[in-house]
Simulated scan of single mutants.
Amino acid sequence: MELSILDLATLAVGKTAKDVLEDSTRLAKAGEEFGYTRFWIAEHHNISALCCPSPEVMLGYIGANTETIRLGSGATLLPYYKPYKIAETFNLLSSLFPNRIDLGVGRGPGGSPEAKLALSDNFSEQAKKFPDTVKELKDFLDNSFPHKHPYSTINAYPIPSVPPQLWILGTSLESARLAALYGVPYAFGHFLSANKSSEIMNYYHNNLKGKESGIKPKTIFAVFVICAETNERAQELARSALLWEVQLSTGIGDKGLPSFIESNGYTFSRQEMELIRNFKNKMIIGSPTEVKKTNRYTKYI
C-alpha cells in the first residue's frame, strides 16, 4: 500500500500565511524523505484559515525544492476554469518536473457563495457541465480530439515527455461513475464524507472502462489520520483538530487551528462531545502500530 499526503495549507493560531506555505514545502520534503508516494495540495477561496487558492503556483515552488515525490492538486476546481488553460498549466509543470505531476480535478466551489460569484459568473452552470469539461481536459492532455473537432488543431504547449496524470476527486457515486467512464484514477474523500464509501469504491473497481484492454483500477482513499509516538500523544494532538471542527461547526474557526494550550484547557460540552464522536468516525488516531492495525480501509485501495 502506498502512502501519500493531502495538505490543506491550514493556518494555525499564531502563524502567518507565509509560515503555513513554508510548512507545506517542508512537509513535502519530509514526505519525500520518508518514502511517501505523492504530495497534493488543495484549492480554497475566501476561507481565512486555508491558505492556498492556487495549487499550481505552490506546486512549482514545491517542485523546485523536491526531487522525486509526485506532486498534484487535490483538487483543481474545474468549473472555475477553461480546460485548455488547465492543460497548458499542468503540461508546463510536467515539463519542469517530468513524470511527477498529478492533476486532480473536482466540481465543488471550495469557498463561500460570494467567492464563487467573484471567481465565476456562471459556476453553477459550469458545474453541471463537469462531465463534458473533464472530457475536454482529458482530450487536451492526451491530444485525442477527433479529426473534425474544432480543437483538433490546438496543442496545450509545452508538450511534456510524460503528461500529467489526470485524477477525478469526489465523494459521490456520480464522481466514481465519471472516473470509471473515462478510465482515469479516482480519489475518494472519506475525510469529507464517509457515506456509501464501500458502494462508491466498488462501483469504480467493477465498472472501469478499458479493463479489457489492460487499464487497471487506480484509487486513493483519503482518510484523516493523526499519528504520534504513542496513542496518548496522538489523542493529545487530536484535541486541537477536534476543537477546530467544533469551532467551525459554530462559525468561529476563522483564526485557524487552535494551539495545544487552548485545546488542552478546553472543556467540551455534552453536545460538542456528540459532534466529536461523529468526527472521530472519519479519523484514525494513534501510534504507528495502532494506525497500521487500523486496516479497515485498505480493501478500497
Rank of each mutant, 00 (worst) to 15 (best):
Tyr84Gly: 14
Thr250Gln: 13
Ile276Pro: 01
Ile261Ser: 13
Thr230Ser: 14
Thr171Leu: 03
Leu237Tyr: 12
Ala238Tyr: 01
Cys227Asn: 08
Leu92Thr: 15
Thr267Leu: 11
Ser240Met: 13
Leu117Gln: 12
Thr10Tyr: 11
Ser144Ala: 02
Asp254Ser: 13
Phe90Val: 09
Pro258Phe: 00
Thr16Gly: 02
Arg277Ala: 14
Ser172Met: 05
Asp19Phe: 14
Ala64Gly: 15
Ser269Tyr: 04
Asp7Leu: 07
Thr230Trp: 06
Cys227Ser: 13
Asn122Glu: 08
Thr37Ala: 13
Gly256Ile: 00
Phe260Asn: 14
Glu245His: 15
Lys255Leu: 10
Phe279Asp: 03
Ala228Thr: 11
Asn122His: 12
Leu141Tyr: 02
Glu136Ser: 13
Glu229Ser: 12
Phe268Lys: 01
Leu50Asp: 00
Gly251Ser: 10
Lys255Arg: 12
Ala194Pro: 10
Phe279Asn: 05
Ile215Met: 03
Arg26Pro: 05
Lys128Pro: 08
Ala30Cys: 08
Lys135Ala: 09
Leu169Ser: 06
Ser269Pro: 09
Cys52Asn: 11
Met273Gly: 15
Thr37Trp: 08
Lys211Pro: 06
Ser259Cys: 10
Lys209Val: 08
Ala187Asn: 09
Asp23Lys: 10
Thr294Ile: 03
Gly253Ile: 01
Arg296Trp: 06
Lys299Thr: 07
Glu174Pro: 03
Lys280Ala: 03
Ala187His: 05
